[in-house]
């Protein structure tokens, strides 16, 4: 199959800290890949290395055969939808939700072109799809955590990329919003067949659609394989230092796993 993402020996050192250590991975177009690991394992660094926002110390990244770190990397980024971890913006920011979601179209529009009627229609459609259409005129900084994450997903929807990178999109929000966000991501994969990398440290928040898992530990790609093989007590214990029972459930198209844990002796 054609590679949507290709990382070769990617090493990132920032401020004397090793973020990634020789990570090589090949992800096919249309795959939904979960990336898990404890805090500080290099999950966010992996995503920012892929979209070219974090400089590489060594190695190479190709997205659809193109280098996001090279000259004109912003053109490659226009084809990568990135939803970062929730960071609440300044509540006084002079930008509405609708204007912020339009940012997703700008990479494709290019310099000097103004968004047209079709662009605004796509923005409104995306806002309605993620369930925040009625908040379009609200200032971005006035959204709740769950609303803000939905707006972020609307922003990458209008970008219409071939690759989506989700960095803990369901963390720091309430369980209902978490369920909705995971459902949105899964329906996005089902409807568009896009390549998705979904990062989480919270195993119950790992979508069922993630059939392949990358397990990161101390900046290294520690395991790479099918969900069934890696999401089992021995691997979880080795990764997190926890005794854990893993109980998949699939209730109403449900997503995730349930962990019952006790600290490892």
């Amino acid at each position: 199959m054609s590679a949507a993402l290709e990382l070769r020996d990617v090493t990132v050192v920032r401020q004397n800290q090793l973020g990634l250590d020789g990570v090589s991975v090949h992800i096919n177009a249309g795959e939904f890949v979960g990336v898990i690991g404890p805090n500080g394992a290099g999950k966010t660094t992996l995503l920012t290395a892929i979209n070219g926002m974090c400089p590489l110390t060594r190695g190479s990244v190709r997205v659809g055969g193109r280098d996001p770190h090279g000259w004109g990397g912003h053109r490659v980024r226009a084809g990568i939808g990135y939803v970062p971890q929730l960071r609440r913006p300044d509540p006084r920011l002079p930008i509405t939700v609708r204007e912020s979601v339009m940012t997703g179209r700008l990479g494709q529009l290019g310099w000097l072109k103004r968004p047209g009627r079709e662009d605004w229609r796509k923005v409104d459609e995306a806002l309605n799809r993620v369930g925040v259409g009625e908040l379009a005129a609200r200032p971005l900084g006035q959204l709740s955590g769950g609303e803000y994450q939905r707006a972020a997903i609307a922003r990458v929807l209008v970008q219409e990329p071939g690759v989506y990178l989700f960095d803990e999109p369901a963390s720091s929000i309430d369980p209902q919003a978490q369920h909705d966000v995971i459902g949105l991501v899964q329906s996005l994969h089902r409807d568009t067949g896009a390549t998705i990398l979904y990062v989480t440290h919270d195993l119950p928040a790992l979508p069922m659609a993630a059939r392949r898992l990358l397990l990161l530990k101390d900046g290294r790609l520690w395991r790479d394989g099918p969900r069934e093989a890696l999401l089992e007590p021995r691997e979880i214990r080795a990764l997190y230092g926890f005794e854990a029972g893993v109980y998949p459930f699939d209730e109403g198209g449900g997503e995730g796993v349930v962990l019952r844990s006790r600290a490892a002796r």
Binding site: H74, V76, R77, G79, P84, L93, I95, R114, L140
Partner: peptide, 24 residues
């Protein structure tokens, strides 16, 4: 006037604009 949309995106949320492919 010419680059208002890029300026607004970068001024209000630089990393978001950069991730969307705006030459931030």
């Amino acid at each position: 006037g010419g680059f208002f949309k890029e300026i607004q995106a970068v001024v209000c949320h630089r990393e978001t604009a950069m991730a969307a492919g705006v030459p931030a």
